[in-house]
Design a protein around this nucleic acid. Sequence first.
DNA 1: AGGAGACGATCACGATAGCCGATTCGTATG
DNA 2: CATACGAATCGGCTATCGTGATCGTCTCCT
Lengths: 294, 294
Amino acid sequence: MDVQDLKVFEAVARHGGMKRAAEELATVQSNVTARIRALEGDLDVRLFDRHSRGVALTPAGERLLPYAHRAAVLMTDARRAAKDDGHPFGSLVVGSLETTAALHLSRPLAAYVAAHREVDLVLRTGTTAELIERVLTGELEGSFVCGPVAHPELEVQTVYHEELVLVAPPGLGAIEALSARREVRIVVLRAGCSYRQRLEEILARRGIVGLRTLEFGTIEAIVGSVAAGLGVTLMPRGIVAAAEAEGRVELHRLPPEDGLVETLFIRRRDGHASSALTALIATAAGPAQSVAAE
Amino acid sequence: MDVQDLKVFEAVARHGGMKRAAEELATVQSNVTARIRALEGDLDVRLFDRHSRGVALTPAGERLLPYAHRAAVLMTDARRAAKDDGHPFGSLVVGSLETTAALHLSRPLAAYVAAHREVDLVLRTGTTAELIERVLTGELEGSFVCGPVAHPELEVQTVYHEELVLVAPPGLGAIEALSARREVRIVVLRAGCSYRQRLEEILARRGIVGLRTLEFGTIEAIVGSVAAGLGVTLMPRGIVAAAEAEGRVELHRLPPEDGLVETLFIRRRDGHASSALTALIATAAGPAQSVAAE
DNA sequence: AGGAGACGATCACGATAGCCGATTCGTATG
DNA sequence: CATACGAATCGGCTATCGTGATCGTCTCCT
């Protein structure tokens, strides 16, 4: 058994068929069949049930599947670890919340790519839950997420402290006035956004429940819709400070237990902390905080 | 890069020479050389510095080495997971403290091997620290250890509660009398035994410090030496109950914060919990407690 | 200084595992 | 019953891997 065998196994399992897996693997079907049969022979266990429209995992296959993925991740990690001589290079894929990217990362990232020309940097955005999942599967080398996070396989470090404020249309007055404005909605960036649940809890604690939601894909659209009186949202203060200064929106401070959150950087505990990643964290968590404090 | 390549690499690193590694791998030196060179070519990194008496890892090789071991462990786990159909079989290597083995495990182990004839059971003993280390490296599938244990990669479950008692020669009277008996020693099973440190702390809290130690490899020898007045030791009550009944030693109860400890079963969180292991825990932790309570 | 021994590098050869293309077989669908 | 889809099988080929012999170099011992 070999990681290459596990790779074809995983492809077959994912596609539910040897022919389709063969395409992905850039080989022929007979080859895939042979390797699966060899693997089954080696393990002395049937991994797939064959039927006329393809194949399906047996229980034994189900048990093996997670190892296939982990082996692939381990090999990429090993490769990276061996080649990484302390001088950042290669591809670096990290995740971030969109708000964190907007508020804290633009300058450090620009500085980073300027300083490390040999790194191909990729920044993917998503919700905290999505990002955690992707870090665990190895799709991301690490990610900025919204705290708190407790997971035994993740190494966590706090990089920023945020103050979340309730962003409302101008002239709303107190938060409680929302209960009289039933047409106002909660505006969120995307489904599953962790700010949404938090905002609902905050409002619920003030007796405001049952607001409809609205989802916009960009921060600008959200601020715009709040300015237009369509709804309220929860944002780090820094992001909406400009809009407030222009009088487009009204900010409402929240008590510390509601408003203060930590932005964390997470990475797999068992993975290799590449030089590229270490340098990024140093760039983002170090100088960036003073940038944010400007 | 392939787990086989990593195996070769690991053997060369461990032996510090290709010829010696070739012997272990049951092949010839030229083959090992070729594979290492291929691996170096694949990674585009030198892994070994060659000199006349053998080879030595480069920094890149040092970084790669841990992955070689992890890959090997992962493959064994994968194999076991795939073949494990819920019916215990194959080899099962677990660890235990000697005291735990003596006090709790003899009957459950006997019952276990009788019930599961297809399992080759191996029980290795050691100190808690040694056992934890061996579980982490994959040498042991799991182990009974002395609590508390907190490690992110370990899954922990409490299986027994022990009452530790101070075992002293007959006629000692109160524990404090030890301060007048400077020739008495602390008798431990082996260096690094966690009971030793605990006993020193307990005595220190009573103003008794600086006792010499004595190390015997078997529980019987320890009890014998205590009975002979050579020293004192700390043991689970169950182990020395018989000796006390015979009047050979005197037991001193300790307050709960000193005397109560948990025996835990630990295993790697990311490893496969084999049926053989699951069945063992069920046998040892379930019926065994009533056995111990007889 | 010179020779012996230890060790890695290299090379030519042979075995073999893996890949490919073509074909056959089984089964579900129309 | 015909068709189509997908897995199994087979023969041929090639790249890769393992082997044994040889070479080059360094160190240690005399």
